[in-house]
Structures are given as C-alpha cells and as structure tokens.
Amino acid sequence: MRQFTTGDLNKQVGDVTDAASREPVVLTRHNKPRFVLMSYEHYERMRGCGDPRRAHAVSEMPDKHAELFGQAIERLARSQGYDDES
C-alpha cells in the first residue's frame, strides 16, 4: 500500500487521487498513519461484503461443519491435539 503525507495530498492531489483510484493509500501526518484514501467503488465493495464468518447453534450447524466439529472433538478427547499441531 502506497503512503503519502498530508502535505503530499495538498501539493500533489492528482498523484495521490490517481494512486487511490488503483488501491487504497495511507495518508500520514507526523510520520504516523492517520487516514486511508480509496476509490468510492472500493469502499462500496468493502461495505457490501459482510463478514463471512457466522456463529451457529449446534442444532442449526450445517451438516458438513457438524461432521468436522465432531471429528475435531473426538481427536481432542483422544489427546491427539489439533490438526495444525506437529
């Protein structure tokens, strides 16, 4: 992600907004990130994409997830640890 200072924004608004039209850019003030500038289209895509994670009660958990969950619980009960442990 490109970075510009707030002073750059004042002096080079065209360059900064051109960069922001391609990807979000960070605007810094006193060498610290302060703002993110992005195209409106990118902002709308971000806003429209809700968090894909979802919590389920066991009774409403999709069958595929319930099966994976059950397998993981069985491995833990046998003291075999998590899949990602060596």
Rank of each mutant, 00 (worst) to 15 (best):
P33C: 03
P33Q: 02
P33R: 01
P33V: 03
R34E: 07
R34L: 08
F35E: 06
F35A: 06
F35L: 15
L37I: 11
L37N: 01
L37Y: 01
M38I: 02
M38T: 03
S39N: 04
Y40D: 04
Y40Q: 12
Y40H: 12
E41H: 10
H42K: 12
H42E: 13
Y43K: 12
Y43E: 09
E44A: 11
E44K: 14
E44D: 10
R45N: 13
R45A: 13
R45Q: 15
R45S: 12
M46L: 15
M46R: 13
R47G: 04
G48K: 14
G48H: 11
G48L: 08
G48D: 15
G48V: 04
C49Q: 14
G50W: 08
G50V: 10
D51F: 13
P52F: 06
P52G: 04
P52H: 06
R53C: 08
R53W: 12
R54V: 14
R54C: 07
R54P: 00
R54Q: 15
A55K: 11
A55H: 07
H56Y: 15
H56I: 06
A57T: 09
A57E: 12
V58C: 04
V58D: 09
V58M: 11
V58Y: 11
S59G: 06
S59F: 04
E60P: 00
D63V: 12
D63L: 10
D63T: 11
H65R: 06
H65A: 13
H65Q: 08
H65F: 10
H65V: 09
H65S: 07
A66I: 01
E67P: 00
E67F: 05
L68W: 03
L68H: 08
F69G: 00
F69D: 05
F69K: 09
F69W: 11
F69R: 04
G70W: 00
G70H: 04
G70V: 01
Q71E: 12
Q71P: 00
I73N: 03
E74M: 07
R75M: 10
R75T: 02
L76E: 10
L76M: 13
L76D: 06
A77C: 06
R78N: 13
R78M: 06
R78T: 02
R78A: 10
R78V: 02
S79Q: 11
Q80S: 06
